[in-house]
């Protein structure tokens, strides 16, 4: 894959990053475990992008977090009620986008 292809893929992923993160936070995760989960699921995200994003989503009121300092200190994030609502809304929008894009790519839309 060429550099231009990589740039296009990165932009495509950036657009769905929030939805991907929210979808993985129905169960509590700390930063590194979430990054691992996303990578194993086929969406590798740069650490320098993901960790600040978690903070931003929390400051937007979509996530709750708490420290667990029993072993290595780790901050666990999970969806709160507003995050659940946002996830549902984005999921619906995503499905609609997939339907539209499929119709574009298959040449059905006029």
């Amino acid at each position: 894959m060429g550099e231009r292809d990589n740039t296009g893929l990165a932009e495509l992923r950036r657009g769905v990053l929030v939805l991907a993160v929210l979808s993985r936070l129905r169960t509590p995760q700390y930063g590194y475990s979430l990054r691992q989960a996303l990578a194993e699921g086929g969406m590798p995200i740069e650490e320098g992008t993901l960790y600040p994003l978690l903070r931003r989503l929390e400051s937007q009121g979509l996530l709750a977090s708490e420290w667990n300092t029993e072993q290595s200190p780790r901050r666990y994030y999970r969806l709160n009620a507003e995050g659940e609502r946002m996830l549902a809304a984005l999921t619906e929008a995503w499905r609609e986008q997939v339907r539209v894009m499929n119709s574009f790519l298959e040449g059905r839309a006029q």
Binding site: G31, Y32, S72, P73
Partner: peptide, 13 residues
């Protein structure tokens, strides 16, 4: 708070 979390995350990485 960010420093504390970042240090832990960098340790994991």
């Amino acid at each position: 708070d960010v420093a504390f979390e970042l240090r832990a995350l960098l340790g994991d990485e």
